[in-house]
């Protein structure tokens, strides 16, 4: 059913998605690799590649880490920008799907593709402004981030492991997962405190996922980091040592 759930059906439902901290992400691509790893073996796998060990490997990934530069001179910085499906509230990828393969779940807002229904037309990938959907080169069906639905509700796993693979693996703790509809959730709190934002909202997609912006470093901190000068006024102990040695 590719009509989006009605507001009545969504009422009381969760809005699960990721929150990515662009201040802490170090651009190591571990999330992308573990995403690929889990999803090629999990319930929705395989997530295939073509010419995987050849000169031109190419395959479907559900998470990609871009690197941007922003700002000039000393205010300039590198920002690693992991990107995967934002599980949009007004997901255009869902409504365009002619077969009923793409759908948005009313109970938690997760956007999924039912592989057996997908005819591989690619229209949903055109409709997503963010490039969050990729065609599986061998299976010829559309793939996208499932928020690791086969982990987060998986009772076979320890409670602590019931999070998306990317969140679990991030060594910098830059990825958070939670319910954005619940104002008391950790992700909602972080969004409030750190000014979390969604991207390209002008596309009318109402993305659920958010980014936490890089923190602005005060100029003095930057200067101190750049030029650590020896201090002119040593403490009393150091002054005594200094006197002793120069004496």
């Amino acid at each position: 059913m590719t009509s989006l759930p009605t507001p009545a059906e969504r009422a009381g439902g969760k809005s699960l998605a990721l929150l990515i901290d662009l201040d802490t992400c170090v651009g190591c691509h571990a999330c992308a690799v573990n995403c690929k790893e889990w999803n090629t073996g999990g319930r929705f796998g395989p997530l295939s590649d073509r010419d995987a060990y050849g000169a031109r490997p190419e395959g479907a990934w559900l998470n990609r880490v871009h690197a941007f530069e922003t700002g000039e001179e000393e205010a300039g910085r590198t920002v690693y920008f992991p990107k995967n499906c934002y599980h949009c509230e007004q997901a255009p990828c869902v409504t365009v799907c002619p077969t009923g393969a793409s759908y948005k779940r009313a109970e938690d807002g997760i956007v999924l593709v039912e592989e057996e229904l997908c005819m591989g037309c690619g229209l949903c990938a055109w409709a997503c402004p963010y490039g969050a959907r990729e065609m599986d080169p061998l299976a010829q069906v559309m793939r996208k981030c499932t928020l690791c639905i086969d982990r987060i509700y998986n009772e076979e796993l320890e409670e602590v492991d019931r999070v998306p693979a990317c969140v679990l693996t991030c060594p910098a703790g830059a990825r958070h997962f939670g319910d954005f509809a619940d104002p008391a959730s950790e992700v909602s709190r972080l969004v409030r405190e750190r000014g979390g934002y969604a991207v390209m909202e002008e596309m009318g997609t109402a993305p659920t996922a958010r980014y936490l912006p890089p923190r602005v470093r005060p100029r003095e901190t930057l200067a101190a980091v750049e030029a650590p000068e020896p201090t002119d006024t040593p403490g009393r102990f150091l002054a005594w040592v200094d006197r002793l040695l120069s004496g």
Binding site: F68, A198, V199
Partner: peptide, 19 residues
């Protein structure tokens, strides 16, 4: 800038593609 939300400090340039 709107696609990344990184506009505030200045203009945004792609440094490295993801693949």
């Amino acid at each position: 800038e709107s696609a990344t939300g990184l506009g505030p400090p200045g203009s945004v340039r792609l440094l490295d593609p993801p693949h």
